[in-house]
């Protein structure tokens, strides 16, 4: 079985969607638990491609096809995953109002999903009220805010304030090209990461800290 999981991991890393789906079916038929398939093949595959990406050994196209293969594998798993198994937690992601850039946020989504998070992407150019509504409705473990422009980055403190008025303990991560750790600290964000892969690492730390 470990050989099958290794093949599945390789298929995801290579972005082979059909192969990944078929190997997941094979693993399930062979009696493997869905959780084990995720933990031992799908997530390690995304983690490895993410690490290569953060070392500039893999590029966005490789990350995109791997995420797509992981998604196809997950489609096979979802119907049999137990109701309580919510993975690592729920993250709501969005780019702040005035900013229509999506790729940075989408890379973070792929890395978070690869790390086992459920991600609700509420898109780009998201008004502060919409972040609050989405937070109220879904009570995510983490809210992630993205901005590419130094002008739109200024919206982040407003969103943090509004969401914390709803839930003072809200865990909010910020990121994007102009954002720095210093800026994140100044506006009271719970976490910051300089790239998509490290955002997933940081998110894992934050939910682990929360559950302690």
């Amino acid at each position: 079985m470990s050989e099958l999981l290794e093949r599945l991991k390789q298929a995801v890393m290579a972005g082979e969607e059909e192969e990944a789906a078929s190997l997941v079916r094979e693993a399930l038929e062979g009696g493997l638990e869905p959780r084990e398939i995720m933990d031992k093949a799908l997530m390690p595959a995304m983690e490895e491609i993410g690490e290569r990406f953060s070392r500039n050994e893999a590029f966005i196209p490789e990350l995109i096809v791997a995420a797509s293969a992981m998604e196809k594998g997950m489609e096979e798993l979802k119907p049999v995953l137990s109701g309580e198994d919510k993975g690592r937690g729920l993250v709501i992601l969005g780019t702040v109002y005035g900013d229509i850039h999506s790729i940075g946020k989408n890379l973070v989504r792929m890395c978070l999903e690869g790390a086992g998070f459920e991600v609700l992407d509420i898109g780009e150019d998201v008004r502060t009220e919409r972040f609050v509504e989405a937070y109220r409705e879904h009570r995510p473990d983490i809210l992630g805010l993205s901005a590419l422009l130094s002008s739109t980055m200024q919206r982040m403190p407003e969103v943090i304030q509004a969401v914390r008025a709803e839930d003072p303990s809200a865990v909010i991560m910020v990121g994007g090209a102009p954002v720095t750790q210093e800026f994140a600290d100044r506006i009271g964000a719970s976490g910051y990461a300089p790239n998509a892969f490290e955002a997933a690492v940081k998110a894992k730390e934050l939910v682990a800290g929360k559950s302690r």
């Binding site: 972005g15 995109i64 999506s102 790729i103």
Partner: peptide, 12 residues
């Protein structure tokens, strides 16, 4: 309509 789509086809 999307950069990600093009980059996906870079591989596919």
């Amino acid at each position: 309509g999307s950069m990600e789509k093009l980059l996906y086809y870079y591989v596919k």
